[in-house]
Amino acid sequence: MQYSLPTLFPVLAVVVLAAHGSASAKTEVCHPASDKQIAALFDRWNDSLKTGDPQKVVDNYAPRSILLPTVSNKPRLTADEKLDYFKHFLEGKPVGTIDFREIMLECNAAIDAGLYTFKFGDGSVVKARYTFTYVWNGHKWLITSHHSSKMPEPE
């Protein structure tokens, strides 16, 4: 038996509304944010690096988040995987500075992307591209994705 789209539309509408709630369901309340507040989230993350405590760094990430790190080929999905990465990364005593950034704001979400430089305790420097995506969890901003990769071209 074949059904035409006009015949199926009422059925599809009921299925969609049942899956996502009715049209009168509660609406999302957007947490206000400014570029300055989102920029400060990098400072919060960078300050946690300076503590040398990998758990303090990992606490910046949402439970469901991804880290695509600068100096590792392995994506880090779990808190334990991120902890393992930062345990080794922090041994070098990294301090990051932003060289260029673009911030985009959405309802309860933000993107901070650009270029940063890491200086390490041994004097070495790594220039990299980065993207942090954040979500407001109702209490604070948390990182949902963090991509960082070394600059591909020599200066």
Rank of each mutant, 00 (worst) to 15 (best):
K87Q: 01
I38P: 08
D59K: 06
K56T: 06
T133M: 04
V29R: 15
S24C: 09
A33D: 04
L90S: 04
R64Q: 08
I111N: 03
S124W: 12
A109E: 12
S34K: 03
L142T: 03
A62Y: 02
E81G: 00
P152I: 05
L77K: 05
L90E: 04
S24A: 13
N137F: 05
N73D: 09
N46E: 14
S149V: 02
S34N: 05
A25K: 06
A39C: 09
D43K: 11
N108D: 05
L8D: 06
L8Q: 09
L17Y: 12
I143E: 01
K26P: 10
H146L: 07
A40L: 15
S145H: 11
Y134W: 12
L5P: 15
I38R: 07
S65E: 02
L142S: 00
C30D: 07
V58C: 00
D99F: 02
D80V: 07
M104Q: 15
L8T: 12
K50P: 03
I98D: 02
S22I: 07
R101N: 11
F9M: 15
D47R: 11
I38E: 06
A40P: 13
Y130L: 00
R44D: 14
K150F: 06
W45Q: 06
L12A: 15
K140H: 07
D84I: 05
V11Q: 15
A40M: 14
L49W: 11
F132C: 01
V126F: 08
T144I: 05
Y130F: 08
M104P: 06
D99R: 03
N60Y: 03
D43H: 10
M151W: 13
V58Q: 01
V14F: 15
N73H: 09
G121M: 01
P69K: 02
L8I: 12
S145R: 09
F120L: 01
L41H: 10
G138W: 12
D84W: 02
N108L: 08
D99C: 04
E28K: 12
K82S: 00
E153T: 10
H88L: 10
S48H: 04
E91I: 06
G92M: 13
S4R: 14
S148T: 10
N137G: 03
V29Y: 13
L142V: 04
E102W: 11
F100G: 05
V135M: 06
P69Y: 03
G138I: 08
